[in-house]
Computed example of a mutant assay.
Amino acid sequence: MQLFIGFTAAVLISLLAWKTQNLSTSGALAATILGTIVFGLGGLPWAVLLLGFFITSSALSKLLGRRKAALDASFSKGSRRDWAQVLANGGLSGLFVLLHLLQPQATWPWLGFAGTLAAANADTWATELGVLSRAQPYLITSLRPVERGTAGAITLPGTLAALAGGLLIGALAVLVGPMASSSLAVVALIGLAGLLGSLIDSLLAASLQAMYVCPACGKETERHPLHSCGAPTQFKRGWPWLNNDWVNSLCTLAGGAAALLGGLVLI
């Protein structure tokens, strides 16, 4: 019955997200599968964290989309998530739900689950709010000033937004999860794990992620094979296979690993 309810809830939420253009068709299908695993096999507490990430990140993308439109040419995809983005941000969280089924009394799958979503939320908040900041962005690897929207650029407001996004997931994890003791420490742990994942995302984007250049307008971009202006993009630097989806996956992996390692100290 729980699995059926979880599947039904996942379908309804995915359809709503597709209708509001937060998910593409492939993204809605992937979200249905992920939601069924999290809602149906994990239950309400696990669903709350996934919804906390999805609702807040989608709301920011939607509310700030017009203000960020001028910078969208730099990013590989828009705010409408496809299947690869859904899996990149939430695939590992689904894995931790399955691990929870193997060890239902253990708390470490919950910590790993919360850490992955904290990293995904932190990275999304940093991107959506950081690129709109009037503060001067600096490349994370060299700290040299760069233009807004540059891959791997960070700002103080964006970093604070990342921390806030991670702390939100940490707060939800304490409110609905099995680790009410040492609650402030758990919130801080998950929040910092999310921040770490977001910073690793920026570090990879600045150093190893595949980046391209548009010969028509001369702008560096994540988009390939076509820029937003329609011109074919040319490879510039990085590892050709390491696109934004892989970077996001590594971001969530870092957040989950940090939460697990920190949990060894707390538990």
Rank of each mutant, 00 (worst) to 15 (best):
Gly130Ile: 06
Ile169Arg: 09
Leu199Ala: 01
Leu102Phe: 13
Lys62Gln: 06
Gly35Asp: 06
Glu147Gln: 15
Thr124Lys: 12
Gly194Trp: 04
Trp125Arg: 12
Ser133Trp: 12
Ser93Leu: 01
Ala10Ile: 11
Gly170Glu: 07
Gly165Asn: 02
Gly78Lys: 04
Ala59Thr: 13
Gly78Pro: 01
Ala135Glu: 14
Lys19Arg: 14
Ala31Gly: 09
Ala161Asn: 14
Gly262Asn: 12
Asp201Cys: 02
Val97Gln: 10
Gln209Lys: 14
Leu226Thr: 07
Leu203Asn: 00
Leu253Ile: 14
Gln234Ile: 14
Ile5His: 03
Ala126Glu: 11
Gln103His: 11
Asp201His: 00
Tyr212Trp: 12
Asp72Cys: 01
Leu132Trp: 02
Ser228Val: 05
Ala162Met: 05
Pro232Ile: 06
Cys217Thr: 08
Ser26Ala: 04
Ala164Glu: 04
Thr124Arg: 07
Leu15Lys: 07
Ala153Glu: 04
Ala84Arg: 15
Gln234Val: 13
Trp108Phe: 13
Leu204Thr: 01
His100Ile: 00
Val187Pro: 00
Leu29Cys: 11
Ser74His: 10
Ser183Thr: 00
Ile267Asn: 14
Met179Gln: 09
Trp125Val: 09
Pro215Leu: 04
Ser24Lys: 03
Phe39Asp: 06
Ala259Lys: 08
Ser182Gly: 14
Ala73Gly: 14
Gln21Val: 10
Ser202Ile: 10
Arg237Lys: 15
Val247Gln: 06
Cys217Gly: 13
Phe96Asn: 07
Val265Lys: 06
Ser181Met: 05
Arg66Gln: 10
Ala59Val: 07
Trp110Gln: 05
Leu184Ala: 13
Ala180Gly: 04
Ala258Pro: 02
Lys236Leu: 15
Ala31Pro: 05
Val176Ile: 00
Ala171Leu: 15
Trp46Pro: 07
Leu101Trp: 13
Met211Glu: 10
Leu60Asp: 06
Ala180Gln: 15
Gln105Asp: 15
Leu51Phe: 06
Leu226Cys: 01
Ala118Ser: 11
Gly90Val: 07
Ala254Asp: 03
Asn22His: 11
Gln21Ser: 14
Val86Phe: 10
Val38Cys: 10
Arg66Lys: 13
Thr107Gly: 06
Ala114Met: 07
Ala126Gly: 10
Ser198Val: 08
Leu50Ala: 12
Ser249Arg: 12
Gly78Trp: 02
Gly197His: 04
Leu199Met: 12
Ser58Val: 03
Met1Ser: 13
Ile37Tyr: 06
Gly52Met: 00
Gly130Pro: 05
Ser182Asp: 09
Gly238Ala: 08
Gly65Asn: 06
